[in-house]
Simulated scan of single mutants.
Amino acid sequence: MKPYLICHMMPSVDGRIVGDRWKITGGYKEYERTGASFKTDGWMCGRVTMEGYAGKASFSGKAVGRNIPREDFIAPHKGKSYAVALDPSGRLNWKSNHIDADHIVEILAEKVSDSYLEFLQKKNISYIFGGKTQIDLKRVLEKLGKYFQIKKLLLEGGGKINGSFLAAGLIDELSLLLMPVADGTIGTASLFDIETPSRKKSVSRLKLLATKKLTSDILWLRYKVQK
């Protein structure tokens, strides 16, 4: 069984998600508080977001003199909460195997280098494979449930990652902190950027679950994704 997936984001009223210019007082604090209220078993982001925790310098290890089997690796760990990084090519240069109390789990493609797998093993960072060159998102979620007993997971990705999960029918709920700002910047990442040839397939119907006004005129919207 795959985990219950909640996409938790804080977009502008026009759907932009790059908020470094918005300067909304208490926005991030409210985002963290509402996210914690779901009591999930972990959270998932893409490589770009995770660089904020790992560092912007990409991994550049030397080639190793052995072939490492493309088998899932579950590192010893004590934590029961997880930080899941979608990093198919293996570029995140981690300094530790955890973020706060959350054990790091890397999602990789089999094209990743042997040197990166060795690096993760030495760091005691768990990793699972999602496919040879592309990531099978459903398969990844099923593995997270099987190996780590993750029953509920926050998705906090960029537009393309969120869009991929939505288009695959894998998001169960949306939790949106609507920021009281209109951005309007052309070319900026939006909440969902779905790369599909079919406009019909990119449309998902939602059912409103709850609304709540928070501090600084932030509106918390919760939707069930209808499937």
Results as ranks from 00 to 15, higher is better:
Leu209Trp: 03
Met44Ile: 06
Lys80Gln: 12
Leu191Phe: 11
Gly79Tyr: 10
Ala57Glu: 07
Gly130Pro: 15
Ser89Ala: 12
Ala210Tyr: 02
Tyr28Lys: 07
Trp43Met: 05
Ala54Pro: 01
Leu120Cys: 11
Val84Ile: 09
Lys56Cys: 09
Thr133Arg: 13
Thr49Gln: 06
Ile161Asn: 15
Leu5Lys: 11
Asn162Gln: 08
Ala75Pro: 05
Met50Cys: 04
Leu108Ile: 06
Leu208Cys: 10
Gly61Ala: 02
Lys23Phe: 10
Thr25Ser: 14
Ile218Lys: 10
Asp217Lys: 07
Tyr4Trp: 10
Pro88Met: 00
Leu209Pro: 14
Met50Thr: 10
Ala210Leu: 02
Leu177Thr: 00
Phe165Leu: 11
Glu30Trp: 07
Leu155Glu: 08
Asn97Pro: 10
Leu191Trp: 11
Gly46Tyr: 12
Lys138Tyr: 07
Ile161Asp: 15
Val203Cys: 12
Arg199Ser: 15
Ala167Leu: 07
Lys23Cys: 00
Ser126Phe: 13
Asp87Arg: 14
Ala189Glu: 09
Met44Lys: 04
Asp172Ser: 02
Pro88Thr: 07
Asp20Leu: 03
Lys56Thr: 08
Arg21Trp: 14
Ile99Asp: 02
Val84Arg: 12
Gly169Ser: 10
Asp100Arg: 10
Leu219Val: 07
His8Ser: 08
Glu156His: 08
Tyr116Val: 00
Val13Arg: 14
Gln121Pro: 14
Pro76His: 09
Leu221Gly: 00
Gln134Pro: 02
Arg33Phe: 01
Asp217Leu: 11
Gly187Pro: 00
Ser115Ile: 01
Ile104Ser: 05
Asp193Cys: 12
Lys143Ile: 11
Glu71Asn: 09
Ile186Arg: 14
Thr133Asn: 06
Asp102Tyr: 13
Leu117Ser: 13
Leu221Asn: 00
Met1Pro: 12
Arg70Cys: 11
Tyr116Thr: 06
Thr34His: 12
Ala83Trp: 01
Ala109His: 08
Asp87Tyr: 10
Tyr147Thr: 06
Val13Leu: 15
Tyr4Cys: 09
Ser60Gly: 01
Leu208Lys: 01
Ser190Gly: 14
Glu173Lys: 00
Gln149Cys: 02
Asp14Pro: 01
Phe129Lys: 04
Arg70Asn: 13
Leu166Lys: 06
Phe192Asn: 01
Lys143Pro: 04
Leu5Cys: 09
Thr215Gly: 13
Tyr28Leu: 05
Tyr116Gly: 13
Arg199Ile: 15
Phe192Pro: 00
Gly169Asp: 05
Pro88Gln: 06
Lys23Arg: 08
Leu174Gln: 06
Cys7Leu: 15
His103Trp: 05
Thr40Tyr: 09
Lys122Asn: 14
Lys123Phe: 00
Leu166Cys: 12
Gly15Trp: 08
Thr34Gly: 04
Asp72Tyr: 02
Ser37Pro: 05
Gly145Val: 03
Ile218Tyr: 11
Lys62Val: 06
Thr211Gly: 06
Gly159Arg: 13
Leu144Tyr: 09
Leu176Tyr: 13
Glu156Trp: 07
Asp100Ile: 10
Lys2His: 02
Lys212His: 00
Leu206Lys: 03
Gln121His: 14
Val140Tyr: 04
Thr34Arg: 13
Lys80Val: 06
Phe165Pro: 07
Met1Asn: 09
Ile150Cys: 01
Glu195Phe: 09
Val105Phe: 09
Gly157Tyr: 15
Lys151Gln: 03
Leu170Lys: 08
Tyr82Val: 03
Ala83Pro: 00
Tyr31Pro: 00
Met1Ser: 08
Ile104Met: 09
Cys7Tyr: 11
Thr133Ile: 09
Asp172Pro: 01
Phe192Gln: 00
Arg91His: 12
